[in-house]
């Protein structure tokens, strides 16, 4: 399945775009997605940390990703 990943802050600069498309297997988990992103964008591994959000909620590494989910990469937040 094809998914889109939204990127913000430093992640947008690492991707060179605010949206990247990836091809994932149908039962892919958040950690599968992270592995794939880190292969394509090794600079992600230099971040202090980062989270994946699925449908506007922080996701756990074992959560399954479904087609049409809204996926976002959340680098360390710094609001306020």
């Amino acid at each position: 399945m094809k998914i889109n990943v939204l990127a913000f802050g430093v992640a947008k600069e690492i991707f060179g775009s605010s949206l990247v498309s990836l091809e994932l297997t149908n039962d892919a988990t958040v950690s599968n997605l992270q592995y794939m992103l880190e292969q394509q964008y090794p600079r992600l591994k230099q971040l202090a940390s980062y989270m994946i959000a699925v449908n506007n909620e922080y996701a756990l590494s074992g959560d399954t990703i479904h087609e049409r989910d809204e996926i976002a990469i959340i680098p360390p937040v710094s609001g306020g």
Partner: peptide, 12 residues
Amino acid sequence: IDTLKQTVPIWK
């Protein structure tokens, strides 16, 4: 304010 700085997806 403390929790906002930890969890809200806003970046500066």
